[in-house]
């Protein structure tokens, strides 16, 4: 189970046009992430973490090379197919939580299930279950504006995992949180990784997060500089 590759990239390049010049954000990324991994893309600002995470999340496409998510090539997906892949198999957690401000906590978590067309009774049960996982069952009727940063991020986690996706992609999930909340969030995600066997991929440069990772892929200038598993170290 652990060794099934969910994400595979080969010679992945991503280049942005900046006026007359170009910026190479990713340069020849070869990567494989298996089911159940708790892996982080780490590195300084501008190293390509978020770009790689966006491509893995089918939000962006590579300039050259390939990226396969669950056996599907991101570069060949239509817009509709990419949306469906995100809806059915991927969960997202953002640095700024990105909760829908006019919705309650319950409705925010319910949203991906609405898109999937899951019927009301089952939807309610799944949302309550997800809120229980993140310890926010009692805040279901609150609005995002009534929550602390830590609580907001836990809602975002519940929203990402409610549909039990294959992969959760978290972009700097603790950047807006204090130390106590960061640890709480990471422990929650680690628990979900253990209990649900959900694959977590982080983009982060937060030391607090790095301490929890089972595998750390260090990016420097768009290239993989190191790929280390907790307990051992191997250089790419």
């Amino acid at each position: 189970m652990q060794d099934l590759p969910l994400v595979v990239t080969h010679a992945l390049d991503k280049t942005y046009a900046l006026g007359q010049t170009t910026l190479k954000a990713l340069d020849g990324i070869d990567l494989a992430i298996s089911r159940g991994e708790f892996v982080g893309l780490v590195g300084p600002s501008g190293s390509g973490k978020t770009t790689l995470l966006n491509i893995i999340g089918a939000l962006d496409v590579p300039t050259s090379g390939s990226a396969e998510i669950l056996g599907r090539s991101v570069e060949t997906l239509t817009h509709r197919e990419a949306a469906r892949l995100r809806n059915e198999h991927l969960g997202f957690i953002f640095q700024t939580f990105n909760l829908l401000p006019v919705y309650t906590v319950f409705e925010n978590v319910e949203f991906p299930l609405l898109l999937q067309g899951i019927e009301t009774g089952r939807r309610k049960q799944m949302v309550e279950e997800a809120l229980a996982w993140v310890g926010l069952a009692d805040r279901a009727d609150s609005r995002p504006s009534q929550l602390s940063g830590g609580q907001s991020q836990r809602v975002a986690i519940a929203r990402a995992i409610v549909k039990k996706p294959d992969v959760v992609l978290a972009d700097e999930p603790t950047a807006n949180l204090d130390a106590a909340n960061s640890h709480h969030i990471m422990k929650t995600m680690l628990q979900l990784n253990r209990d649900l066997h959900t694959t977590f991929v982080f983009a982060t440069h937060d030391e607090k997060v790095i301490g929890y990772l089972h595998r750390t892929i260090t990016l420097v200038d768009g290239r993989i500089a190191r790929d280390e598993h907790a307990g051992d170290s191997s250089h790419s």
């Binding site: 999340g57 939000l59 817009h79 509709r80 949306a83 469906r84 995100r86 809806n87 059915e88 997202f92 953002f94 700024t96 990105n98 829908l100 401000p101 949203f111 991906p112 898109l115 999937q116 929203r159």
Partner: peptide, 16 residues
């Protein structure tokens, strides 16, 4: 516009 990005990330199409 950020909300639109979130909706798309959650699986809504541009048409949606």
């Amino acid at each position: 516009r950020k909300e639109m990005g979130t909706l798309m990330a959650l699986g809504m199409t541009r048409g949606g």
